[in-house]
Amino acid sequence: MTTPSTLQSQTPISSIREDSICTTDILEVAKLSRLAVDEEAAKNFADDIAKILDMMQTLSSVNTDNLTPLANVHEAAQELRADIPNADIDRELNQSVAPAVEQGLYLVPQVID
């Protein structure tokens, strides 16, 4: 009764990084993620993530040649929303959770564009 595995073909792919993630990679990614990570922390994260990426190596063994990526199990067409506006918006309530508000505006340190 065993069903045939779809994972039999073990063609390795070379696209997964051979060398592991380093502190510099983490610092780069931290910048993209807007996280303040210092060298020390970056090193620790790099060690952890290197181990995780090691675990991911197993993905290379899976033959995915004829497969399309799956983003969400329900690929059925979604229900759309009718174009009906609803102006019932409580700004005071919504801004009651904001760290800094003045004149109805959310405040951030000055941005020069």
């Binding site: 506006p85 700004r91 109805g104 505006l105």
Partner: peptide, 24 residues
């Protein structure tokens, strides 16, 4: 020129009051 926004039901007609046409 829809009446409501692309992913929410907020109206697309703006008043001058900031953040009164932005829902959750």
């Amino acid at each position: 020129n829809t009446d409501s926004k692309i992913f929410s039901s907020s109206p697309t007609k703006f008043g001058n009051e900031p953040n009164t046409q932005a829902n959750i």
